[in-house]
Design a protein around this nucleic acid. Structure first.
Lengths: 178, 178
DNA sequence: ACCTGAACACCGTTCAAGT
DNA sequence: ACCTGAACACCGTTCAAGT
């Protein structure tokens, strides 16, 4: 790839990221304009809308997976999972756009497309928790990820504490029954 | 309202309902055409897209609320709630469109707009469960409804059993800890 | 090899003309 | 009072012409 092409690609992603922070309604022409490139250039790099969104999402997904590993080093599985889902919620709040703008179907595909970055991260918590005996053995990562999908429909005006409480309810449901 | 107007209104709703069953991507012109009316007529009856969707949703919401009351008559709160959320899931599966097509914000408004039909239904379960001592006292209906929002992002190809299992995880999280 | 932006298609929305 | 559908605006997408 030529260096000007690589630069354009980067600037397109940057603009998309910035716009997605404020709204989930991404106008592709607006992204192109903000990036200072022609519409055709945007389509050359990202043939479909989802291709662009997926790319924006990928970096974030990797960041979240990374934080999962970090949390597990310093805490037991259940507490680490509790902390992590709040991290995810904060991400979803700031980047409302990314989750909401993804078509539901495409949201499902994400996991497999990206080698299941997020799924794998969740799996770390579940595996650890099952070993510790704190997480029930009949849950898998996809179920938890699906459940977290509710975040894409949370009103940003919703107080953080309420969202956190909902997340606690979820984690409580995942606990092994004594 | 003139009878021809009322008839048009009904036919528009009918067409919208039918189209929403197969896809969440509702083209308003297509609804008008399917209903056999001009676009202007559609806009006369439903000034905004959400106005139309809300109206489609209202009847369904009332049906779900009704089934909540029925279930509570024949079962304890926890079992009734378990059965009811599966009922909601089935509805979401068939009418994928309704939930998905609603803008997230508008989804939040629904509750208040319709006198909180769904919220009130959920509240019946929670109140009963709290009295019975089976449901934890720190949950409110809005939280449960928000949590159920994950249904709008479930792939229709997902096996029912998996969705049911996720719903059971949710209800488990709502149980009073012994 | 890559870029630009005019041009086309599509769909939401309005409104002048009709009944 | 209500309806119709042509017309406009907007945005996604393509492609001929440029570097």
């Amino acid at each position: 790839m030529r260096s000007d092409a690589a630069g354009n690609r980067e600037r397109i992603l940057e603009s998309a990221r910035r716009i997605l922070t404020t709204s989930s309604d991404v106008k592709l022409n607006a992204v192109a304009k903000a990036a200072g490139v022609g519409q055709g250039t945007l389509y050359r790099h990202f043939p479909t809308r989802d291709a662009l969104l997926n790319e924006v999402y990928r970096a974030d997904a990797e960041g979240l997976a990374e934080s999962a590993r970090a949390l597990l080093l310093t805490d037991d599985a259940e507490s680490a999972l509790r902390a992590w889902v709040k991290h995810v919620a904060e991400y979803a709040r700031v980047k409302q756009g990314v989750l909401a703008a993804l078509s539901p179907t495409s949201g499902q595909q994400l996991a497999s497309q990206h080698g299941g970055t997020i799924d794998q991260a969740v799996d770390l918590f579940l595996e650890a928790g099952k070993r510790e005996g704190t997480i029930r053995s009949d849950v898998d990562a996809r179920e938890v990820v699906t459940l977290l999908g509710f975040l894409s429909r949370v009103d940003p005006a919703e107080p953080v504490e309420r969202v956190h409480h909902i997340l606690d309810l979820i984690v409580d449901g995942l606990r092994a029954t004594a």
